[in-house]
Amino acid sequence: RVTNEENLPDKDGYIICANHVSNFDFIFLTLNFRYERFAKFCCMAKKELFNGSLASRLIVRIGGMVPVDRGGRVDETMAALRKKLGQKWGVLVHPEGTRSKTGEMGKFKSGAAVLAIEANVPIVPAYIKGGHEIFPPDRKLPRLFNWKRLSKYKVKVVYGEPIYPNGESPEELMAKVREAVLALKNEEN
Rank of each mutant, 00 (worst) to 15 (best):
M44W: 12
V181A: 04
N23I: 08
A119Y: 02
K47I: 15
P137I: 11
D10M: 14
I163A: 03
G64D: 07
M105G: 11
Y14C: 04
G106K: 00
N19F: 05
G106H: 07
V93Q: 04
E76S: 15
F41R: 02
L85H: 01
A39L: 09
V2I: 15
M78I: 14
R139C: 12
R149T: 09
E172Q: 12
Y127A: 02
P122N: 05
G72N: 09
S53C: 10
T102F: 11
A126W: 00
K176V: 07
K88W: 03
G97I: 01
I117T: 05
R34D: 10
V181E: 00
G130R: 00
L141E: 13
V121G: 00
L141F: 15
K152H: 13
F145K: 15
G90R: 02
K107P: 10
A183F: 06
L184A: 03
K156W: 07
E5W: 02
A45D: 05
N186M: 13
P170Q: 04
N186C: 12
M65Q: 04
I16D: 00
G13I: 01
G131E: 02
N4P: 13
R1W: 14
N32H: 13
F145E: 13
D10H: 14
V60N: 02
F135E: 03
R82G: 00
S151W: 10
P137T: 10
N146M: 11
T98V: 10
L92K: 02
E118G: 06
K154C: 09
H94L: 09
A119F: 01
S151C: 14
F108Q: 03
G160N: 05
P165E: 06
V93G: 02
R149V: 08
R61V: 08
L31M: 12
V68G: 05
V177F: 03
F33I: 10
V91H: 03
A112N: 00
S22D: 12
L58P: 09
S169R: 08
P122E: 06
R70H: 07
E76N: 11
Q87R: 13
S151D: 10
L92D: 05
G52R: 08
L81V: 08
Q87P: 09
A126I: 03
K88Q: 07
L81N: 02
E5D: 08
W89L: 05
V66A: 07
E96I: 08
C42W: 01
E161S: 14
R34G: 09
C43F: 06
G52I: 09
M78T: 10
A45T: 06
V124H: 00
A175K: 03
N32L: 12
E5S: 08
T3E: 05
E48Q: 14
K152M: 14
I27V: 15
G63N: 15
A119V: 02
P9N: 12
P170I: 05
F135A: 07
N32P: 13
T98A: 11
E48I: 12
K185P: 03
V124Q: 01
T77F: 06
E104G: 11
Y159I: 10
A39H: 03
N146D: 15
